[in-house]
Nucleic acid binder design. Sequence first.
DNA 1: CGTCATTTCGTAACAGCACTACGGAACGGC
DNA 2: GCCGTTCCGTAGTGCTGTTACGAAATGACG
Lengths: 199, 199
Amino acid sequence: MPRLKQRTPELRDHVLVAAEATLARNGVEGFTTKQIATDAATSVPAIYEMFGDKNGLLRELFFVGFRKLAAAVSAVPSSDDPRTDVVALARAYRVFSLAHPSLSKLMFSQPFASFAPTDDDLAAADTSRRALVKTVRRCIDAGVVRGDPVDASRVLLALVQGLMAQETAGWLGKGKASCDRRWDLALSMFFLTLPSGES
Amino acid sequence: MPRLKQRTPELRDHVLVAAEATLARNGVEGFTTKQIATDAATSVPAIYEMFGDKNGLLRELFFVGFRKLAAAVSAVPSSDDPRTDVVALARAYRVFSLAHPSLSKLMFSQPFASFAPTDDDLAAADTSRRALVKTVRRCIDAGVVRGDPVDASRVLLALVQGLMAQETAGWLGKGKASCDRRWDLALSMFFLTLPSGES
DNA sequence: CGTCATTTCGTAACAGCACTACGGAACGGC
DNA sequence: GCCGTTCCGTAGTGCTGTTACGAAATGACG
């Protein structure tokens, strides 16, 4: 009887990818509802019907980011050497943050004053951390890391998060070379033993 | 001849401390020019005459924060053991971030979309980092840390920054005990040798 | 003591933001 | 062609940062 609905789940998905693109292109400051509506070829009230408010949209992007990160993390192959695996996982975090700087800022810093993820939000976005805990536990069993697996993983996450924040802000170094060097040094410090073949 | 000026450097200083209090009390979201003017018992245009714009005020607070941090860092006593000194410096960072969470967020994260410190701003706020480099160099000379002093300091700063961000966001642990434990573990990982008397 | 010139101050406006009420448009049934 | 129902986007509200401009305050001078 009435006209056919436009504000469908499909449009919601489309708006989500458009919003991600807007965030990546225009940054935090340019992330306005009007701009997103324009980019997604829809209207502002449509966004509010589908996401509640701007924070709702940001929350969905937060999940999108952690899903992408989880995908990148689970794509990391497992080897015999747990140390190699932990380094590979940390590098996956780094690659992700360089590929999606604004998204990773949304996930790990809190660039929007109005949006802070709740504990439930964080729990739902915890997949990649659990993968880290598993591999770190293998390191502890192998004697190359000490401490509790959960504690050590948290420490590693803090280290990775700090490095990502510094690198995306441009404070870690001027060129890729110095950033690489500092990432390598940071990751090597996480382990008790030096890597084979290094001085 | 004209009326006497009210928008003096003294008022500027007063507004600065009022703004710091407003930021600490109301957070990033409540940090509005009108609120600050009310708290400082002055008018909005006065703020704009004295600081240019809101970013100018934020920049001054950024410097205030780094001056406070530098004071806390230089108050840390030097001992014979460089390792002890590095740990004490890192703890000074932690104490500072717990005492001034919003200020430390302004300094290390970028919670205001419109304000990003320039390279000059960062250079002027570099005192405490240089203190860290000196002590880390002593660690390297003593053989308890490896790598370049500047690189290793940057890594330590990244670690500290990540821990501070996680702790102030409430992600590092539920109680003070687990946070303490993870800080200790993190700092111990920075060194090649285990502390004496620890397993 | 009144008038004036000069400097300073705060009211009141502007644009842009998040958010939403509501009138009109688009359909199927008759 | 008309009507009832559902949906959509225009056009508003209140709040933000920012600023133009008129009013207020003062000392100098007649």
